[in-house]
Structure formats: C-alpha cells, structure tokens
Design a protein around this nucleic acid. Structure first.
Lengths: 254, 254
DNA sequence: GCAAGCGGTCGGCATTGTCGAACGACCACC
DNA sequence: GGTGGTCGTTCGACAATGCCGACCGCTTGC
C-alpha cells in the first residue's frame, strides 16, 4: 500500500482524540498528545472547523467535535448491511428473550454497537448505538475475539483493564475462555463488565465462514443465568438461533 | 483565515459525497463528481480507509462510509450541550402534547436532528437522530431561517424544492412567512413536507439572543391543527414554553 | 504587576501531495 | 472467444503544498 496522505491521517487522529473524554480539548493539549507542533495542529483544526467536523467554543477557544459527524455517522448506519439485515431478528430476539439486544462489530480494539433494541418491559434505557464496549469483558467481544486471530493476538499484548472483581485480566485465562467459545459456538459473561449484569452472544458470519459481527442479549444476572450461575440453555438457544438467522439473511441478500 | 489544508478539505468532500445516496460509490464516480484526477481521489480514499472512515466492498471495489464515523457521531452527541440540556424538556413536551418531539440545528443548508422523542402512544417509529430535514418545508427549519440572516439569504438564492403540493417554492412567499415567524416567535407547517403531517416549532437561544437551535412537535394534521387549519393554541404554547425552558437551561449551565 | 500559559499568525524551506499516463483485471457485448 | 470498454490501482517526476518554530496579543493566576 503506497504512501497514505499525512495530513488526512493526522486529521483523523485529531478527531479520534476529540472523541475521547467527550469534553472540550485545548489546542496545546491536542498538539502535545499527538506530538505535533502547535502551528501544524492549528492548521488541521482550522480546516476541520471549516467543514464542520469540529466546533470551537467561542468563550474558551477550546475545540470539540462538530455536527457534520453526526450526519455522517447515521449515514453509515443507513448503509450498513449487517445492521439492516439484523433489525428484524433483533426485535424477535428481544421479544422472545425479554432482554435487551445488541449487535456489535469490531472497531479499533473494541466492540462497536451498531444496533440496539431495548428490553421490552423497561422504558428508560440509554441508547447504546455507537457506543464502544471492551472486547475482553463482554460476550459480544469474546465472540469477536474468538474468531479473529489477529485481533486476539493484539489484545493479548495489551493490558486487560479490570472493570469488576470478575473481569478476566490474564491473557492465559482469556485464551482458555476463547477456546471454549470456539468449541461451543457462543460466549457468555457474568458481572465481568458491570456488577449485576450478564450477557450471552453468538457470531454472525458471511458466506465462507468469516465472522463479521456478533448478536447478543444482556440483562440482570438472575434473568440470564440459572441457579448454578450458568447461562440458561433456552436463552443460549435463542441467541444462537438469531445469529444463524442473521447470517443466512446476509448470505441471501446482496 | 489563512489557508485551509487542501487534502483535508478534499477528504471531507469525499465523505460528504459518500453520505449522499446511502449506497456504494465507485472511484470513477467520486473523482468525476469532485473534479479530481483518479489518482488523487484514490490516495484520499486509501487514507480514509486506513483510519476506518471508509470501507471498501471486497467484491465490487466500491467505497462506502466506515464504522469509525458512527462512534465519532455519537461522541458528538455526548458532548452536545444543546442536546443534553434539552432531553428532559423534550420528554416533558412529548408527554404533554402527545406528539413526537425533535430538536434541530442548522447544518450545511439543512436541519440536523440532534434529538428525537417518539410519540408516547405509538411504538414503531424510525429513529430520526442524525437525519437532515429541509429548511423551507419544516417548522424547525423556518425557525432557524427566520433568525439567521446569512442562512435565509443563502436559501433565497437556491431553488426551493417542492415536496408536496403545499411546499413553499417562491422566495417571496418564504420571506413573508419568515417575517410572520419573527413577529410571532414560533413557526408552523402543514403538509408542506409530508402529506398528512404538520409541525410546530420555536427557537432555542443562548444568552445574548442568538438562536442556536429549535424544538418542535410533529404529527398528523388533525392532531396539530384545529378545524380552521390553524395550529392549536395550546400546542403552540407548550412548544414555546419548552423552547424558553431549554434556553434558560442553556443560560444557567456552564 | 508580572509571568506563564493560552490560541493564533507568519513566512522560508523542503517535504509532501498532486497529477496524468500506464497497468492488469474484469465484464459485457458483439 | 476474442475485444473494446471500464473498473480500481500503481508509479514517478514535478512543484505546489503544507510543515514547522519563532513570534504576537491576550487572558489567567500567582
């Protein structure tokens, strides 16, 4: 792959940096974080501002993400085949299981949520589309790791951040779990990401077997697991069924 | 404002182009649309692909938007003060009026929807966050036009596309309506955007009076308007009240 | 009141991206 | 089954482009 364009890569790095911390970032902070001279960083920000990818706080002069990105993000959703193919089956799965449903795919060392169906009974839940979840502490993430050797290799070299007392933090333990996932064809997690919460997920494949995403349910531990702290078999069956249905739908469509 | 960076502006133009049409675009089409040599367009796309702002269809070689944009879009939402300040009042307005509520702001000659509350009774509605609505055919858009001279000047020089039989298509008629909006402090629309649908909106201001957004309700014509085809006064009052509440919240916070 | 930090500006230098032509793969149509 | 057209991609020479570090005016916090 011949030379990528430097300024565009830098602009993307600026946007990624602004996306972290969800607050306002100063020019000095940005240029220091990326190791760029102030003048260079300012030129990039000035240009991103012109195209409304970045906004500047009039009072403080600090920078934040711009409105044009919101429209680009939803335009991506409209064109995303994984999402459009899985919407119907997600609703079905949510109704049958009585739990909230998420579709995730890999992005940048994390799980990107591309679709989210609220739990049928509950009303107020925060919209999760576009959120990033940890790979090693969610059922969705374990599925993506289990079927992507490059990805699991990358994660193994990284520190596994502990989110609860139950989070898997050693590479060896994670590898054992991933082997189980590959053997079983589905993954689960109980209180490894959030106390009191558990989840189950299964892989979505394209023809040829490549795993492009995962579908899963999540909810209170006592709703997802039985008395022996094992995922309820009927829920596992519902999730794997939905995953296969979406995979078939991806294969059929185009 | 000294020189913007050419390649970044071009990359942004590519992304905007890909966002239109929601489908897959070929390299030749992109380079032709932007008036760039094929080689140059390819370099930009190659770089955008590296940072996952763009994906390429393995089979056809065509390009589409990438997953990283989804996360940037939702990160923008998290940091957007207009949205966070208006969430509570939007829920209240939806409950009182019984209609769906939208918060809009100006982006690139259109209305960008930054928040959306479903109609309380109805269940299945498509999520509207991130959508772009026409300025001249929606109540939200009329509000934004009425209080932004630059914007209304820009729109006046543009062809007003007709969406229904009732859409305002002449600059003179639009200017008359905008004067009424300024006089009344709110805007309405009936079947100018979609047959059978009507809407009411009012401006959201920051301290100093600058209009930064609009909040409005929309629904079936016979729910929004009375028998004389005029917006129901009690709904107008609820909308303007909500708009002022959000404006006060913006003033108080930060 | 001073100094340290901020965001913003400027202009010389050379690195960087631009550009048009050529390449191989693919498809569709004679 | 050739064959023309179109697709995405590569390459290398040129010079226009964007990079960079020093400098400016301003606010903020000692």
């Amino acid at each position: 792959m011949p030379g990528p364009i430097q300024s565009i890569e830098r602009a993307a790095a600026v946007l990624r940096l602004l996306a972290r911390g969800s607050g306002h970032h100063g020019l000095a902070e940005i240029s220091a974080s990326l190791g760029l001279p102030k003048g260079t960083a300012h030129g990039i920000l000035r240009t991103l501002q012109r195209v409304e990818f970045v906004e500047q706080d009039q009072a403080t002069g600090r920078y934040r993400l711009g409105a044009a990105l919101l429209h680009l993000g939803t335009s991506y959703l409209d064109a995303n085949e994984l999402r459009s193919r899985s919407i119907n089956w997600s609703d079905t799965l949510a109704a049958r299981s009585g739990q909230e449903v998420r579709i995730g795919m890999h992005l940048d060392g994390a799980v990107l949520v591309v679709h989210h169906v609220f739990r049928p009974d509950d009303t107020m839940q925060t919209l999760g589309i576009g959120a990033m979840l940890p790979l090693h502490a969610t059922a969705l993430g374990k599925v993506l790791l289990a079927y992507d050797a490059d990805l699991s290799g990358m994660v193994r070299r990284r520190e596994l951040t502990s989110l609860t007392r139950r989070t898997i933090v050693t590479a060896a333990a994670l590898e054992r779990v991933l082997a189980q996932v590959r053997a079983a064809g589905w993954a689960s997690e109980a209180e490894e990401c959030m106390p009191g919460e558990a989840s189950i997920a299964a892989p979505i494949r394209v023809p040829g077997g490549l795993v492009v995403g995962a579908i899963g349910i999540s909810g209170a531990v006592d709703r997802i697991c039985d008395s022996a702290s094992r995922p309820k078999p009927e829920l596992v069956e519902q999730v794997t069924f939905a995953a296969e249905a979406v995979s078939r739908s991806l294969a059929a469509g185009s």
